[in-house]
Each structure stands twice: as structure tokens, then as C-alpha cells.
Design a protein around this nucleic acid. Structure first.
Lengths: 210, 210
DNA sequence: TGGTGTGAACAACTTCACAGCG
DNA sequence: CGCTGTGAAGTTGTTCACACCA
């Protein structure tokens, strides 16, 4: 791939493009212009072309983009030409719901391990046949099942401690649902999903506009 | 300062600050400097001061910020000096998990209504005593229970249709978990939570750095 | 002709550096 | 004296406008 440094926002938008390209594929649409795709994704058409230009030339001038080809190329850019193995820590309501959620599989993410620190949960059988292990065993299990990314769904107060364990076990990527920032070494990447933060943005806007 | 337009990123960070200020309160910390708070939140100290400066002067020079006061002030800025009533549409695994998730209540969000389009779910009793209603009844129920924000947890293919119904019922704020952009009139605000998009950012970085 | 690819203009956001004040 | 508050500088990201090409 290219050696320019890519805006994080571009990467986020590439994901959005793939969601809508997938939908277009399902609808049988074969070709789409940056203008139409932009409208679906609620962005500026030039933004789409610019985002893609970081990685190469994927369109046909005067025509547009071949939906299937573009989808394939973007997924390759995002590293999604392989399946990724996820391990999840914190088997409360949310963790249990995520492990059974279709969207992960649809995008190429597979849960291969589940952890908690509550012994009463170790017996429980999960939807997809996984068993819940003690978080202390994360290193052993990680190597056994080839876990690559850790998903944290514990309460905020335990997130840092879990992150430490994951890092220690050699995990290089973490998706954190707990509503606090966590601190990890530079060789480990973290992304955050905090739905109450998004709600706060909403309430801010709703409060201001009146 | 008061009437400048605020960067969306600032609003997002204000939420992050509150999460850590809450944690500090729990730990009994009374005063904190922008430097220390910045370290907790993984941002630049000047960024915190700048973010706050959009809204007023909340610190004491030479001292720092009083944790409780700052928390109160930021929550007021975000419109969180009231409880907000949420209605959720799509009672699959994820929807059911969210409705029982402590973080919402902790931040002042209360689920007051639940909807689906699958009649077999209407009977089901939810954790917090709510009943699942037909999405077609959203307008009536919304007025009855004072629902203010709609949360969409349906599959992508049904998100737009649900958004239309919410808008029609007079909802002015939507939190969308479905992995597609939705289109609504200008008087309605939308925020997105897509965890597979965040995972894609992670896999991109993991793929590039090797 | 019509839509992509892209340098250049523009806009937004972040960080610096220090003045100002408790 | 130390930490906040803030103009100015620096950096990053977005949009425009048009050259270019199937």
C-alpha cells in the first residue's frame, strides 16, 4: 500500500462506504458514482474521491466505480481480506449480546474466546458454543485459539486492569466498551466504543438548539 | 466565548472528562490540574483548558479545578442536568442488553419504551418491567411516556424505515446502532454507534504496522 | 460527454507559549 | 509561585475547481 499518512477520519469513512456498498451489492447495483455514494453516506463527493486517492485509482473516468470491485479493494485496505479472531472480557448483558451479534460475523470478525472474573459464570454455555474462562487464563487460551483482538466489556473500574492482562498476554489490538480511556504501550492499538458519549453529544445539541 | 460555535470533538471530549471526573469523585480526589486530568483522558492539557474556555472559566489559577464543581458544570453544558427518556426500537440481543445496562442510568438516561415489529416479542417482559410494543404504536406511546430520544438497534436494512417512523412521531434525537447512515430532516439530530467500524480502524492499523 | 483524480484554497482543530491572576 | 486562560502559530482535514481521460 501507499506511504502517505492517512487521516483516521478517512479510515472511518472507508468503513461507512463498505456498509453501503454491501447494501448496494445486495440490491444488485453494479456501478455507482462518487456523487451517489456520497449522498448515501452523507459526505461530500470530493471527500470520497480523496479518501480513495490515498490508496490508488479505483474508478473509471466518465463512468464511476464498480461496486463489487470497490468493496473488495476497500476491505483489502482495511485488512479485512482475512478473518479476525476476537476474545471478549466481561460476560455481562452487553458482552453476551455482542458475542451473538450477527454484524461481527458479517464483517469477518469471529469470537473465539470469552472471559470473566466471576466463577459462577465459568459453567455457562454461550450461544456459539464457547465457554467462559477465568481472565487469569487469558495468555494460555489466547495462544490456543489464536486470539488477535481483545474486546473489553467490563465496568469502567476494571477496564485498565483487564487491558494490562491483555497486553501482557501479547494482544496488539483492543476494542474498549468501558467508558474510560485506558493506557497501553505503543505497540498496542486501542479503539473506543462508548454509547453514552454519543448520547451526550445528542443531548448537548438538543439542549442548545432551543 | 459563550456563543462561538463549538467543535463536535470538544463535546465528545467533555463527556470523556466527566467519566474520569466521576471516577475521581469516587476516589475522593477534590482538586485536579488540567495536566493530570489530561493524562487520565489521554489528551493535551491545553486542549482541556481550551475546551472549557468555550463555555466559561471554571478553574482557579495556580490551583486547578474543583472536581465536583467541574463535573457539575460540564454535565450542565451537555444538557445532563435533567433525566432523558429513551425509547428503543429493535429488541434483539443487543437491544435487550442495552435496556438493562447500568451505564445509561448512571449517566441520567432512562429507558421508558421498547418497540419491535415481531409480534412474538410483544408478550416478553423486559428486565426493567417494560413491555415491547409494536413499532406502529410509537407515536401514541411516545406521547404517553414522554419519550425524547429514539435508539435504533434493528438490522441495517430496517434502520431508515424506523427512523422515518420516529421522525413522524415527533422525535428530535436518534442514536443509531445500525451500521448505515440514515437520513432525517434538519430538525432531527442523529448520532451513530457502530462497533464494527471501530474494529475496522483497529484492523487497518494492525495490518499497516507490520 | 460525464465522472474521476488532484493541486490549490479554504476551513477546522490542536498545540504552543506566555500573559494574567489567585 | 503555579496553573489557568488565551491569542497566535502550527497542523490537519475538507472542499473547490478543473485538468484529464474512458
Amino acid at each position: 500500500m501507499k506511504f502517505a499518512k492517512i487521516p483516521p477520519a478517512t479510515i472511518g469513512r472507508l468503513s461507512v462506504y463498505t456498509r453501503h456498498l454491501q447494501e448496494l451489492t445486495r440490491q444488485g447495483v453494479e456501478i455507482i458514482s462518487s456523487e451517489k455514494l456520497a449522498s448515501l453516506c452523507s459526505v461530500n463527493p470530493a471527500q470520497i474521491r480523496k479518501d480513495l486517492a490515498y490508496f490508488g485509482e479505483f474508478g473509471v473516468r466518465g463512468v464511476g466505480y464498480y461496486v463489487k470491485d470497490l468493496l473488495f479493494e476497500i476491505r483489502k485496505i482495511l485488512g479485512l481480506n482475512k478473518e479476525w479472531n476476537l476474545g471478549i472480557v466481561g460476560m455481562g448483558n452487553l458482552g453476551t449480546a455482542l458475542i451473538g451479534h450477527e454484524n461481527f460475523l458479517k464483517q469477518g470478525y469471529r469470537f473465539v474466546a470469552a472471559f470473566d472474573n466471576d466463577p459462577t459464570k465459568f459453567a455457562r454455555a454461550l450461544p456459539n458454543g464457547l465457554k467462559v474462562f477465568d481472565i487469569k487464563e487469558v495468555k494460555r487460551i489466547k495462544d490456543e485459539v489464536g486470539m488477535e483482538i481483545g474486546v473489553i466489556t467490563t465496568p469502567a473500574s476494571r477496564a485498565q486492569e483487564v487491558a494490562n492482562r491483555l497486553v501482557e498476554a501479547g494482544i496488539r489490538g483492543i476494542l474498549n466498551f468501558a467508558p474510560v480511556r485506558i493506557h497501553v504501550p505503543a505497540n498496542c492499538e486501542v479503539e473506543y466504543v462508548d454509547f453514552t458519549i454519543r448520547l451526550d453529544s445528542l443531548t448537548y445539541r438538543l439542549s442548545v438548539e432551543d
